[in-house]
Design a protein around this nucleic acid. Structure first.
Length: 281
DNA sequence: GCGTCCAGGTCTACC
DNA sequence: GGTAGACCTGGACGC
């Protein structure tokens, strides 16, 4: 099944724009230039996405039902015209609009992005991949072709604390996942509402930080994934890249980094991410 | 082989 | 509101 995509959509840029495509149930095929994953959990179905000359192909036994979640994860309905217009003020960032970069791959649910964001905190990327791989492979629903879905909050809530320590290898984060899953499964917390929340970003960020394990970095990363880019989501990796690219490889205060990107206003979080991930750095 | 450090931070106690 | 110290894990590194 083929679906239309915006004229400024770049499939490869979207799936390789950040590390999410490396985390199960996402899988990429560098040779075939495809993105695959299992959608849904009650009746999980596998799909493989690839760019075509006039849009995007969804290869799945239930492709029609997947158009909405596919549009969501690839941000096909998000408008980046203002962002590309703003970038015209800075010649060195022209490559972003030229490559139609900026759409950051996200999960079908905010819950999945929330769990994964916590998995990125205070550990190497290898550990993040290990934790998410363990979670999906040990708790996800298996499809007919042997793939696994991302587990539901209910499935996670049913697991004892030991699962997160001994099976997922989440260490001290175990209590975070257990509590989060129970809160979502019982309806005390509904992260999906953050997508349509029209409160000021600072208020939404404060709400996100109510979740145990979510601090400034994780909250600002989540804000980007729900379409708000005014937080920088500074972490050690991003700081290191900034020092190298813009400060002669010398450490500096976060306030200097914030000041550097302040002129990009509500898009500053996206600008710093793209600036720091520019090829050749 | 062993010890130390650190990585895509956060929480709590304390001031 | 700002800061110090603790916190799981596993890979990299030096010895």
């Amino acid at each position: 099944m083929n679906i239309e995509t915006p004229s400024d959509f770049n499939f490869q840029s979207t799936i390789s724009g950040h590390g999410w495509s490396e985390l199960l149930p996402f899988e990429t095929d560098a040779n075939a230039l495809t993105l695959s994953r299992v959608f849904g959990s009650d009746k999980p179905v596998s799909a493989t996405l690839s760019a075509t000359s006039d849009g995007l192909n969804i290869e799945s036994r239930d492709a029609a039902a997947l158009e909405k979640p596919v549009r969501h994860i690839l941000r096909l309905d998000e408008n980046f015209a203002d962002f590309y217009e703003l970038l015209k003020t800075e010649k060195r960032l022209a490559w972003i609009a030229e490559n139609n970069a900026g759409r950051l791959l996200r999960s079908p649910t905010v819950f999945e992005d929330l769990v994964k964001s916590i998995c990125t905190t205070n550990c190497s990327w290898a550990m993040t991949k290990l934790m998410t791989t363990n979670l999906v492979n040990k708790l996800g629903t298996r499809t007919a072709d042997g793939k696994r879905s991302f587990p539901t909050a209910e499935a996670m809530a049913n697991q004892p604390l030991e699962f997160y320590k001994d099976e997922m290898r989440a260490g001290y984060r175990a209590v975070y996942f257990k509590e989060l899953a129970e809160n979502v499964a019982t309806g005390r917390l509904n992260p999906e509402l953050w997508l349509a929340n029209d409160a000021p970003t600072k208020d939404l960020k404060r709400e996100m930080k109510q979740v145990l394990g979510v601090g400034d970095y994780a909250a600002e990363n989540l804000l980007k994934l729900v379409g708000r880019y005014d937080g920088l989501a500074l972490d050690s990796w991003l700081r290191g890249r900034f020092y190298k690219k813009h400060n002669r490889n010398v450490k500096c205060d976060d306030r200097q980094i914030v000041k550097f990107y302040d002129k990009f206003g509500k898009w500053r979080g996206l600008v710093i991410w793209l600036d720091m991930t520019e090829k050749g750095l």
